[in-house]
Design a protein around this nucleic acid. Structure first.
Lengths: 352, 352
DNA sequence: GTACGTCATGTTTACGTAAACATGACTGCC
DNA sequence: GGCAGTCATGTTTACGTAAACATGACGTAC
């Protein structure tokens, strides 16, 4: 039933004479089957016009020799790679990995593979290197999951002729952008807290260099101003639970603080811990809302009210927008926003 | 400073006459610079034997035309792709995404790109499809982050001549395997609890089809038996916090239960929630240990004692083992285990 | 019975690159 | 002054595939 073979550790060097025969090509199959290599090509691509007996001979020869098409030659011939590049800082962020997973899945469904191009820390050199490499990369298009303004800051151009879609950025004037509707999600979170009766809402923001963080913070501020409520300076975190913990300790020190909107679930987790350590009960004394709705959020103590983000949908739309470009279809410039929704669990309640 | 250009939405169809010139090739550069394409090749590859004035002309022509090497042609010529394939079920698991990230980083450092090949659900069709595609894939080798026995169950062969490294599996007899030392990690966790004075330790195991889960459970059982302690049937989870919660509810119902070892941190989180809801204090009434040491574990209530896993090191060793194969160096069959270490935080204490 | 169409299959060529070999100019040495 | 050697550069070829075109056998219609 299974035919896994021992790994061939010495590659394809078993041709006598030391000359390295790459591996089985169409010509080899053709020789064995007694046909021309063009006929092999026709069989391989399921083209019409091959008589059944011939086809079977070719297939037999293929499996005897273990023929596998050479995709480099194919790509060269067709001028396409059937591959999408994904440039990102890292998979550490849960949003990133889920978006990438969705991209990979939808790309595969369309016959595209995806190539990951991580750019380590956001130093100029790294980003530059990634793009230099990308120039030579075997991709038909690129999805940028990266703060694009960091690219702008380095003297790096996206090579002309490379199709691009950007996630999570304000580059909508230059590239098609797909993004979660950050502002609307934040509005829902803040309004929910105000509707519960809280006088105002404190914010634990993400890092300044993140557009997502800035838009969440902007919407938070806007809702408060619109409602005529006091706006405190937001606490700054770096998305990590630990940074949320430290922000939470500062907020716990203020007895007037009854409602906190954290820019992501992990910082909210840190806030919950800080409040717990300081003896502030959630939600009786303080309400907390997160953002992302990661899988664990429902198991926090208490289960976290948060804004659900549809990463899979973002990935799906990225792939399709990019494929439209690759297939020369009319471009949809501007920003495509994916809706969010507030998931109410146990971390929010009217003020005590 | 920055020269990002408008996306070219109509590809390279600006050659008059409707014929589609792919894009700038060495021949085009050669024509403009008034040299042969071989000289362009020499400049592109930094080969010696090009006089300075010529080199500058070529470089000027390159940048004027926006030349970028065609990697399909390069791969065809060299017979290598400089690409590593990673086959996995998904990035949802935190371990997977961190391993993949490390793989991508180390591969990039060696001049290799990585291609992601997700196989969705573990159905036979999916796995088969991934391998069929992989046969045509432009990769020099493959890292399998997948339960290999699931492959065995489908009638699928890893194509001969494809270099393979496997993560997290018992395939050490057939392929080089890199893995975390699951058993030792689990031993440390259980011994820690016994040393604190607990009479025995209950286990919340991962799914049966996971070798990692089986090895953690096996080591847990072994330590208990060695110490002559009672061994209860483990609760089964599916790695999710939610499954840990349900397992935790069952364990909370048993007043004799004072120590729990969960097979990962997320299930431990669920256990913590269940214990909290049932009024069992952690660690005063019940001690809990997890596995993985994910970034959030230090922010749980209470901060989780857990087994630290070095995903980055696993990724690093995978890449290097695979590159050794690709470069025809002596194979290191068998299993390469990465050490773990217990991180003691606030969720464990002597029994009340 | 011949002429033409149909269809399976073979032959030529191009995709872009770079190794291997070829050429030709100049240098330096006797 | 002529000849060998050096070095920059050009020409040929192969990598594996598949489109475009070519061939030739057979069948059918008049």
């Amino acid at each position: 039933m299974i035919t896994i073979e021992a790994p061939r550790l010495r590659a394809a060097s078993d041709v006598p004479g030391g000359r390295r025969k790459q591996r089985v090509s169409m010509a080899d199959v053709a020789r064995l089957a007694g046909v021309s290599s063009q006929t092999v090509s026709r069989v391989a691509n399921g083209a019409a016009g091959v008589v059944e007996t011939t086809r079977e001979q070719v297939l037999a020869a293929m499996s005897e020799l273990g023929y596998r098409p050479n995709s480099a030659a194919r790509s060269l011939r067709y001028g396409r790679f059937n591959t999408i590049g994904v440039i990102l800082f890292g998979l550490a962020s849960i949003g990133n990995s889920r978006t990438v997973e969705a991209i990979a899945t939808h790309a595969a469904a369309e016959g595209y593979a995806i190539t990951l191009i991580p750019v380590g820390a956001a130093t100029q050199d790294n980003v530059m290197g990634a793009f230099t490499r990308m120039g030579e990369l075997a991709v038909d298009g690129v999805i940028l999951i990266i703060e694009v303004h960091l690219l702008d800051a380095s003297a790096v151009a996206i090579p002309p002729g490379v199709h691009v879609v950007v996630v999570d950025s304000d580059a909508g004037d230059r590239y098609p952008v797909v993004d979660t509707d950050q502002a609307d999600g934040a509005r829902q979170a803040v309004r929910h807290l105000l509707e519960l009766g809280h006088r105002t809402v404190r914010h634990v923001a993400g890092p300044v260099e993140s557009y997502a963080a800035e838009r969440r913070a902007g919407a938070w501020r806007h809702v408060l101003e619109e409602a005529g409520r006091p706006v405190h300076t937001p606490e700054r975190g770096d998305w990590s639970a630990d940074s949320g913990y430290h922000a939470g300790l500062r907020l716990a020190a203020d007895p007037a603080c009854t409602a906190i909107f954290a820019a992501n679930d992990q910082m909210a987790l840190g806030v919950l811990r800080a409040l717990h350590e300081r003896g502030r009960r959630v939600p009786a004394d303080v309400s907390v809302v997160g953002f992302d709705d990661i899988a664990d959020a429902g198991s926090y103590l208490p289960p976290l009210t948060t804004v659900h983000q549809d990463f899979a949908e973002v990935g799906r739309r990225c792939v399709h927008a990019l494929l439209r470009q690759i297939h020369d279809e009319p471009a949809d410039a501007g920003t495509d926003l994916v809706a969010t929704r507030l998931v109410i669990r146990g971390s929010t309640a009217p003020p005590g």
